[in-house]
């Protein structure tokens, strides 16, 4: 009998965002569901990208911040950022989602997930089957499952 895969223990119920949902709606949903990011799909249900903590920060702060190699010289407070960028709350998540398609199919391996989490700065990996998102694996859950097995064995 093959050992149970770590990934099989960390799948969650799938909550999806539509690419036309507003940033405000998406942020509320991420907090409600308590995951770091959610898959974004279009009207046909096809995976288009991911919107999560990192993308929210990107939407909130001015676009040039990502182009600054270093920002230790900027004394700006969050209040001033919120004051200058309220409009992003009503913009679609499709504008800010990460469109790098990093997903796995149903029969992915633990090693494949480990490789993705090592090489890509993603917080979740969507599982796609038959053209639809059927689950997600969060990096935190993957780490916890991995750590539990590691501690049991050692």
């Amino acid at each position: 009998m093959s050992p149970q895969r770590i990934a099989s223990t960390v799948r969650r119920e799938v909550w999806l965002l539509r690419d036309e949902d507003t940033v405000r709606h998406a942020v509320q949903k991420i907090i409600d569901v308590d995951v770091p990011a959610l898959p974004v799909v279009d009207a046909t249900g096809t995976l288009r990208g991911i919107f999560g903590e990192r993308e929210f920060i990107g939407a909130l702060f001015p676009g040039y911040v990502t182009q600054l190699g270093y920002a230790g010289f900027v004394p700006r407070s969050l209040e001033r950022v919120l004051e200058k960028r309220p409009i992003c709350a009503h913009e679609p998540v499709g504008k800010y989602m990460n469109t790098d398609h990093i997903d796995v199919d149903e029969d992915h391996s633990d090693t494949q997930l480990a490789e993705i989490f090592l090489h890509h700065r993603v917080l979740i990996v969507p599982i796609v089957g038959g053209g639809r998102v059927t689950g997600i694996v969060t990096r935190e859950d993957f780490f916890r499952a991995l750590a539990r097995r590691f501690l049991e064995l050692s």
Binding site: P62, G63, Y64, Q67, L68, V74, K84
Partner: peptide
């Protein structure tokens, strides 16, 4: 120059 200019203009 461009990112710093965005920052200054902001």
């Amino acid at each position: 120059m461009v990112p710093i200019t965005f920052l200054l203009a902001d």
